[in-house]
Design a protein around this nucleic acid. Structure first.
Length: 258
DNA sequence: GTACGTCGACCTCTGGGGAT
DNA sequence: ATCCCCAGAGGTCGACGTAC
């Protein structure tokens, strides 16, 4: 019991820290926006005919030689001379972008579930990504989400085990945690969950996780072929279960639309 | 060079929900 | 009841990176 209380306190501290970090990120993004706008203004004055994408943030990141997200000039038949080029988004999603997408999608999914009608969900996610410095269209976000889940499920169904420090699929643990929480929410929503504030819901989820972990410890491994979306005790997860954090539905991730 | 894993992009199909 | 729109699932193909 005391251990559980301590764990809850730890989680609350972590939530607080994450919110502070997010505030920092937002201020950085705002600063970037301002810098980019001035840059674009200067740039357009100097080269009036140059085509520039509507991706100021990423242009700055290129200028600052940062790695994420990666941008590269792309030659097109129209601009093969490279005198005029457009910046295209990198096709590959860096880990940071994927994690941001998962968090945003999870947060908004929870919001939409609470608020009823689904609005322009992916537009909001795309806007949220932009605020975090990642320029991805709603369509790209949606496709990435679908491909990600598709591949995740495929791997799960194939019953493959991968090293925890695998270079690839670093987001699997996030998706895994998300599916677990979704399942748990469905289980709990009959009695609790709806009508609660996100923070309150988190506390319920955290309670549920504690109970779940205790239950997991008490049970034996007997569910080798459970479906990912149906069972949170899927195989191959016990080994790293203690490392999971509730990220997907964690309101503390703070990426909630103002 | 080849096999394999991973991923992006595009497509089709299906089910749910709203409008008529 | 029917139509339409949308989200999601699933399939497929090709590109890319890596291990062998």
């Amino acid at each position: 019991m005391a251990r559980e209380e301590a764990w809850k306190m730890q989680e609350l501290d972590r939530i607080k820290t994450e919110r502070e970090l997010l505030a920092q990120e937002r201020s950085i993004a705002a600063a970037k926006d301002a810098a980019v706008l001035s840059f674009l203004q200067k740039f357009s004055e100097q080269a009036g005919s140059v085509q520039i994408s509507n991706n100021p943030i990423n242009l700055v990141q290129v200028a600052e030689n940062q790695t994420v997200p990666v941008e590269k000039p792309v030659k097109t038949p129209e601009n093969s001379s490279m005198d005029n080029f457009v910046y295209m988004s990198s096709s590959r999603w860096p880990k940071e972008e994927i994690e941001a997408l998962i968090r945003l999608r999870s947060n908004l999914d929870m919001q939409y579930q609470e608020n009823g009608p689904k609005g322009p969900l992916w537009e909001e996610i795309s806007a949220g990504m932009k605020r975090l410095g990642f320029d991805r269209s709603a369509k790209r976000c949606k496709e990435k989400w679908e491909n990600m889940n598709k591949y995740f499920k495929r791997v799960k169904e194939n019953n493959k085990r991968r090293a925890e420090d695998s270079k690839t699929c670093p987001y699997f643990h996030l998706l895994d945690a998300l599916y677990k929480e979704k399942t748990r929410k469905v289980d709990n929503s009959v009695n609790i969950g709806y009508g609660l504030k996100p923070e309150e819901l988190l506390m319920h989820m955290m309670d549920g996780q504690g109970e779940q972990e205790r239950a997991d410890q008490a049970t034996t491994e007997n569910d080798e072929n459970e479906n990912v979306g149906q069972n949170q005790d899927d195989d191959g997860e016990k080994e790293d279960e203690d490392n999971y954090r509730i990220v997907g539905n964690d309101p503390s991730s703070g990426i909630i639309m103002e």
